[in-house]
Nucleic acid binder design. Structure first.
Ligand code: NAD
Ligand code: NAD
Lengths: 211, 211
DNA sequence: CTAACAATGTTAAATAAATAACAAAAAACT
DNA sequence: AGTTTTTTGTTATTTATTTAACATTGTTAG
């Protein structure tokens, strides 16, 4: 398989999420236009994405839900699963752990880290909280390859450095402070304010156009 | 000014965030390559974005931080400011309110909604929590134009419908359930699992390439 | 004073992504 | 049996976005 577009990767993850719901409902097959409607995109886009990953459906029956879920899994997940840690057990860290805990996934949150003694030693949704000082050791011992950063912004850089030093392979940065990583580490950053301001811009634009 | 690309809007928001930090540090001017380094992009991209919004810097001195912040504000914000509400005061809703409260912004979170009687009537970071039943009334009274949805996924659709009915103009959906809105309402959806699975995919890809 | 430099601003080219167009084939209808 | 319909799969086209090329112009150094 050749290079998959970034956008296709994101959509595959979303398709799978929708497909899992269909599977739960007992649906065995699904048409491209049904997937498309759920995701607010076109059926052509769905078929093109599936073509790119080499999955072929049945004419007039659509795609086999179970098979497609498994294939997306083969592409996105690694067989053995990937271990994940959350750094910073504040409001956001707790929200994420809580959200993730219900999900069946090859990605497992296996540890969290904090500097607050009140949090260290406790567990939340089965995820133990360690002291940040143990980060290097725990990351190596538990073979943690992805870190989700939810520390205060002023600690973002030093936490990043510590994660990189411990051998982490990917970082998902939720602090509003952009950080820098060596090129062998994959970095994804997200900030709510960007999303919210984008919504505000288009709301304003819509209002103008109506006027 | 003609149509700004979606990606440019996102970057403008990010530039401003970085510029506000520079302003606090007392920095009066900044070069395109400095902005670029902070955001992990190229200086050309920065200059191109600024060209699109018609801002012109000073040769060899760079861009005036204050002026640029103000100009981005004129483009992204509306003069009067836009009122925002959060629906669902759980872990995530609290994290977002808390995060947002410190920020100076033309976007103001002025209300939150919940169905849990324990939460209704309380305030958090100065944001009062109302009963969901009052949503229609409060949204109209307070001229709330954007809603951030952090309710459990199973309530996503009905909450969306209620927001639309109340006349909301934009929705930021943090539930993992994709929702549908009429075309005059701007919708942005975000799910952490998509980001995390994307990170996982590229981590796996990097590992393969190294091997 | 002039040449080299370091920055911006703009146009052009390349790349990435989405959309459209259409071919193929199984199923359903007549 | 043949025709229409419906849905997939693929190639071609268009649109969006990024990157590159280069022209411009104050500033500094010789
Ligand atoms: N991306 C978004 O949409 C978004 C939304 C909300 C908050 N945030 C950001 O996420 C971060 C966390 O937000 P929050 O509301 O959870 O804050 P919080 O203050 O509730 O939590 C921060 C936690 O990090 C811990 N901590 C501090 N320094 C640490 C260190 N060096 N190592 C490990 N842990 C450390 C603290 O003890 C605390 O438990 C902030 O940077 C905030 O700006 C981002
Ligand atoms: N996008 C992401 O990255 C992300 C991360 C974490 C959680 N989530 C999602 O965000 C949502 C909230 O997560 P959480 O951890 O805060 O959950 P939570 O259970 O802590 O909070 C949900 C809140 O919504 C309230 N609520 C329930 N029904 C309501 C209704 N009809 N109207 C108004 N309020 C209502 C509940 O009383 C509760 O306070 C969930 O859908 C979760 O899956 C998304």
């Amino acid at each position: 398989m050749k290079h998959l577009p970034h956008k296709t990767i994101e959509r595959l993850s979303q398709y799978r999420r929708a497909l899992l719901i269909c599977l739960d409902k007992g649906q065995t097959h699904i048409y491209s236009h049904e997937i498309a409607r759920i995701q607010h995109i076109t059926a052509v886009q769905v078929r093109r994405d599936l073509m790119l990953i080499g999955y072929t459906g049945t004419l007039r029956k659509g795609y086999n839900v179970k098979e497609l879920i498994d294939l997306i899994g083969e592409i996105i997940d690694s067989q053995e699963g990937i271990n994940v840690a959350i750094i910073g057990m504040g409001n956001l860290g707790r929200a994420l752990i809580n959200y993730f805990s219900g999900k069946r996934s090859h990605l497992k949150i296996v540890a969290s880290f904090d500097i607050n003694p009140d949090k260290i030693g406790n567990s939340m949704s089965g995820v133990p909280c360690y002291s940040s000082e143990e980060m290097d050791k725990v990351i190596k011992e538990k073979d943690i390859r992805i870190g989700i950063m939810t520390v205060p912004a002023e600690f973002a850089s030093q936490t990043t450095d510590a994660l990189v030093k411990a051998g982490i392979k990917g970082i998902l940065n939720y602090t509003p402070k952009p950080v820098t990583v060596p090129k062998e580490v994959y970095l994804e950053e997200y900030d709510m304010i960007t999303s919210l301001e984008k919504v505000a811009f288009y709301v304003k634009l819509n209002e103008k156009e109506e006027a």
